[in-house]
């Protein structure tokens, strides 16, 4: 990767510069009638350690498929997916996932939901692990809601709990599958800045799937623009907007320029198809 990513910052363990590598990955599904659907074809890209990459594309371009391949939930039918130089054969602890919906467990309060991955994996949760959950809840701004039940929280708050849950095992890679798409527009913007704040506090490689161009530009170091059916890389865009990003980023002339460029890319594709 030619990207300049500061790995010296808070670095405790030596890490290869490439966190995720897709090497000519293809994914073919069988449909109900016995036919085949090519979800992804010949997909190659790399994500550097602690890089924030957004994946942008029309619906049905296989965005969620590639996320599940990284998570080890889906095995590519061709090519290889590597995490820190090792091929993905099964799910690993280095990965935290935030889904489109918060999918909290309604019978647990906020705190118990955050520690759920540990309880689920090992059957028990120690006191220090509960303290880690409390620290994460403070990080996502929900310190005072540790005892609340999911039904009492707003959609944005529930998704913050889901982010804290994904961070519990301190993964090196955070996979986010359109995490803010179910939220209203105002909460969505707020959550974007929240995520940037959390990310600067706990730097990780983030793969953020979205279909919102402004969201991708606001958050990411790079944007992978995908083409639809079969999904492949259409263009990779370096987002050279300065960090930390704020509301001012939205008025940066480069922001609207890149936004228009991506929109054209996605729009012309629709006409070709």
């Amino acid at each position: 990767m030619t990207e300049s990513v500061d790995v010296s910052l808070n670095d405790t363990k030596p890490m290869p510069l490439t966190a995720i590598r897709f090497n000519q990955v293809g994914q073919i599904f069988e449909d109900a009638k016995g036919g085949t659907i090519t979800a992804i074809q010949d997909l190659s890209f790399e994500i550097a350690h602690r890089e924030f990459v957004a994946v942008l594309g029309p619906s049905g371009c296989g965005k969620s498929t590639l996320l599940r391949q990284i998570a080890g939930l889906l095995h590519p039918t061709s090519g290889s997916v590597e995490i820190f130089g090792r091929a993905v054969t099964e799910p690993r602890d280095e990965i935290g996932i935030v889904f489109q919906k918060p999918t909290l467990l309604p019978w647990y309060n906020t705190r118990d939901n955050v520690v759920f991955p540990l309880r689920h994996k090992y059957g028990r949760v120690s006191k220090s692990e509960f303290e880690r959950a409390d620290a994460l809840l403070e990080l996502v701004g929900l310190k005072d809601f540790a005892g609340s039940m999911p039904g009492q929280l707003s959609g944005g708050m529930q998704q913050r709990v889901a982010i804290a849950r994904a961070l519990l095992l301190d993964p090196d890679i955070l996979l986010m599958d359109e995490p803010f798409s179910a939220l209203d527009a105002l909460t969505r913007d707020e959550m974007s800045f929240e995520l940037l704040r959390i990310w600067s506090n706990k730097p990780k490689s983030v793969l953020f799937i979205t279909h919102s161009i402004p969201e991708a530009l606001l958050l990411a170091d790079r944007i992978i623009v995908m083409s639809a059916r079969p999904g492949g890389v259409r263009e990779i865009i370096n987002v050279d907007l300065p960090r930390p990003r704020s509301m001012n980023t939205l008025t940066d002339p480069r922001f609207s320029k890149m936004s228009n460029h991506i929109r054209e890319q996605l729009f012309t594709k629709v006409h070709h198809a």
Binding site: R68, A71, G72, L73, P91, I95, I97, F99, Q100, K101, T103, L105, P117, H120, K121
Partner: peptide, 9 residues
């Protein structure tokens, strides 16, 4: 998604 969360763990 919860089943996927379980599998990923």
């Amino acid at each position: 998604e919860l089943i996927e969360l379980s599998r990923s763990l």
